[in-house]
Design a protein around this nucleic acid. Structure first.
Lengths: 334, 334
DNA sequence: CTGAAAGCGCTTACAG
DNA sequence: CTGAAAGCGCTTACAG
């Protein structure tokens, strides 16, 4: 059973495919097609269930009404929630989103960009990774709208939407210090991206501001992409070897692993031992006691990204790049 | 800056586009192109960074090497984890996945199918919803491989991969009964899909098997898509109005809401009050005490789905439909 | 061993 | 008010 084409509709309606095309694309009035013809063709389209072949349309027009979204890992709730919000908002504006995960592999990220490019997506939303600057630059040279989010690549001139991680992390550490904590650990990842580096810098600056010496052993960098069992082992080592009275986890999944360790060690979280997570997670609020966290305003981030994209797509000229920093919020719970 | 086309490569190499096409598609040997020409063309392709336009290729060949994945809600960790696993496995076989959420809307599901169809995806993986039987039947008529998962639509003849929810739910309730529980509640959703209905039937059957009268007020059906605050209110009502000593939550997000209620009510989970969740969630293990749950083997489900799809795609003839039921496991924690 | 040409299903500048 | 025709970038049956 072959799908109908515009030719079939034209034949049935006894008009040219040009006329059918104009009607499908809402240009009937503009091209002064008679009302009678419009009615007739529309009826035939409705009855036959004809849907234009978007592939052919894309080949001809060079665009697709599809926005490509590249995230680090769709199974991380930060990304899956953002993806869902972006999808919702784009959908309402007539755009579809296709997404895929890089899993922090430069190679996979490059392949995804190639795939999206060869599929003629109209715009790109990317949580980037170091090493794909050139690939993104090529997109920019081709005048494709690109919005980076979550992480920035400062050497590129393009749009970026992200949270202020330096400030957020600084604030979290200060809240520990105000509680009188002295042995404050940071558990973070070893990936070398700005938004992760900022969290470490906020940590160090807050310590310095309050004349607390920085102890390298309290800053634990967990290799990305390793099995959780190894992560748990490393965090356990930290808590066993060092006297720690407060810990900031730089990502939600590290916090989850860390909480498992604390549970295993029977280390309760109380006035003698404080924990702050990152990016929130359903488990944080539910935990006994509830876990404080640094929350990125997902709704606002998604909204800002979509607004930037739509503006770019609507405008013929390249708009000035925007770097939008949205404050992250420290949510204190107990 | 315009992208290169096969024509540009042919010009540079001083051969026909036919020859270039054969080389790109690995048919050079078969078409007995001379080694010298192959080398020359490959060199030019590599140097120029030429990538074939997949849109044009799809238009010509009618396929795309893309598999469409339609889930209920990508921000639900059950779906985002499955999506990630499927993406991984498909990627290794040279297929890309594009996904989108239906949000349980028949209309959106239909639009997504239309979109995927007009993009010529090669196969469909769908967690379906009642009301789209006809749309899926059309895909089947067009000989497109379709794998349903999570939920089945029994009136359709196609492939299905899912867990045995009746057995799992029955087993969960029996474990309550063995602990001496008498007032066992089920908190489920009102969506009318088989895999949810099965969970209620397993519940009822287990009660009947042990001569425990079924009390309608202990079976709470929460409207889908309502705000979480309302869900929390309804669950709170249940626990306040009825004497409950055990509760099975039929989905992970209902369990999360339920656990929030219990926390608010200061109802601890112990030998006098038992809880089992569904589909697991990072919060379950971390909870104090850890929450038992019915776990669907995600890895196995994803693996089975991909295997079915690849078999279908590899075979010219339609393969017999398979209904694969994978046992869900009751994970008892404390 | 290689190429000219048709055709996939659209859109749109041009002509009448 | 409407249509014939070119062209988007490929693949492939056919010819030599």
């Amino acid at each position: 059973m072959k799908a109908l084409s515009i030719k079939d509709i034209a034949l049935k309606a006894k008009v040219s495919i040009t006329t059918v095309s104009f009607i499908i694309n809402g240009k009937a009035k503009e091209k002064s097609i008679s009302d009678a013809v419009i009615k007739k063709v529309q009826k035939i389209i409705a009855e036959s269930g004809y849907k234009p072949n978007q592939i052919a349309r894309s080949l001809r027009t060079g665009n697709s009404n599809i926005i490509g979204l590249i995230v680090e890992d769709i199974s991380n709730s930060f990304f899956s929630r953002i993806a869902r919000l972006i999808e919702d908002k784009a959908y309402k504006k007539g755009y579809k989103i296709i997404y895929s995960s890089t899993e922090n592999s430069v190679e996979k990220a490059q392949e995804l960009i190639t795939m999206f490019k060869s599929r003629k997506v109209d715009a790109y939303i990317i949580s980037p990774i170091k090493g794909i600057e050139e690939d993104i630059q090529i997109l920019l040279n081709e005048n494709k709208p690109v919005i980076l989010f979550d992480r920035n690549l400062p050497e590129l001139n393009t749009n970026y939407v992200g949270a202020n991680h330096f400030v957020a992390s600084h604030q979290a550490i200060e809240s520990f210090i105000k509680q009188g904590k002295k042995n404050i650990a940071l558990v973070t990842t070893d990936i070398n991206v700005q938004q992760i580096i900022e969290r470490a810098e906020g940590y160090k600056k807050a310590l310095a501001d309050h004349a607390i010496p920085f102890d390298e052993e309290l800053l634990l960098k967990i290799p990305f992409n390793q099995a959780e069992a190894d992560t748990i082992k490393q965090i356990k080592q930290l808590f066993k070897n060092k006297k720690v009275d407060a810990v900031l986890f730089a990502t939600n999944y590290l916090a989850i692993s860390g909480l498992k360790v604390l549970k295993e060690l029977h280390q309760t979280i109380d006035e003698n031992f404080a924990v702050i997570g990152y990016d929130d997670h359903e488990a944080f609020e539910l935990h006994t006691p509830s876990i404080s966290t640094i929350q990125q305003p997902l709704e606002e981030i998604a909204e800002t990204i979509i607004k930037l994209i739509l503006n770019q797509l609507a405008s013929k000229n390249k708009l000035p790049d925007q770097q939008i920093i949205i404050p992250a919020k420290l949510i204190l719970r107990k």
